[in-house]
Simulated assay, not measured.
Amino acid sequence: MADTAELSVMGATLPPGCAGNRLLAALRPGDLAMLAPHLSPRALTTGQTLFDAGDDVVETVLPCYSTMISLLVITRDGDEIEVASIGREGAIGGIVSAGFKPAYGRAVVRIPGAALGIPTHRLEEAKLRSPALADLFARYADVLLAQMMQSSACNALHSIDQRLCRWLLSTHDRANDATIRLTQETLADMLGVQRTTVTAVAKALQDEGLIRTGRGRIEILDRPRLERRACECHDQVEAHFQRMLPEVQT
Rank of each mutant, 00 (worst) to 15 (best):
C165R: 03
C165V: 08
C165A: 15
R166N: 06
R166Y: 00
R166A: 02
R166W: 00
W167N: 15
W167V: 12
W167M: 15
W167F: 10
W167D: 15
W167C: 14
L168V: 05
L168D: 10
L168M: 10
L168T: 09
L169Q: 12
L169S: 13
L169W: 04
L169C: 13
L169M: 11
L169D: 09
S170W: 00
S170H: 03
S170I: 01
S170Q: 07
T171Q: 11
T171H: 05
H172D: 01
H172P: 01
H172C: 03
H172M: 03
H172I: 02
D173G: 06
R174G: 10
A175R: 11
A175F: 00
A175T: 12
A175I: 03
N176E: 12
A178M: 06
A178W: 01
A178T: 09
A178F: 01
T179R: 15
T179L: 10
T179Q: 14
I180L: 14
I180W: 02
I180F: 02
I180Y: 04
I180Q: 14
R181K: 05
R181G: 04
L182T: 13
L182V: 11
L182S: 13
T183P: 05
T183E: 09
T183I: 02
Q184V: 02
Q184E: 09
E185Y: 05
E185D: 12
E185V: 08
E185Q: 13
T186C: 09
L187E: 04
L187Q: 10
L187F: 04
L187C: 11
L187G: 06
L187S: 10
A188H: 08
A188G: 13
D189K: 15
D189Y: 07
M190P: 04
M190N: 10
L191N: 15
L191F: 07
L191C: 14
L191A: 15
L191I: 10
G192I: 09
V193Y: 03
Q194R: 15
Q194A: 14
Q194C: 07
Q194I: 02
Q194F: 03
Q194K: 14
R195W: 00
R195K: 09
T196L: 06
T196A: 12
T197G: 10
T197N: 11
T197R: 12
V198W: 06
V198T: 13
T199H: 07
T199S: 12
T199M: 06
A200R: 13
A200L: 03
V201S: 09
V201N: 08
V201A: 11
V201P: 04
V201I: 05
A202R: 14
A202L: 13
A202Q: 12
A202P: 08
K203E: 00
K203I: 00
K203R: 04
K203A: 02
A204Y: 00
A204L: 03
L205Y: 01
L205C: 04
L205S: 04
Q206N: 06
Q206V: 02
Q206L: 01
E208M: 05
E208C: 05
E208S: 12
E208D: 06
E208Q: 11
G209P: 00
G209A: 01
G209F: 00
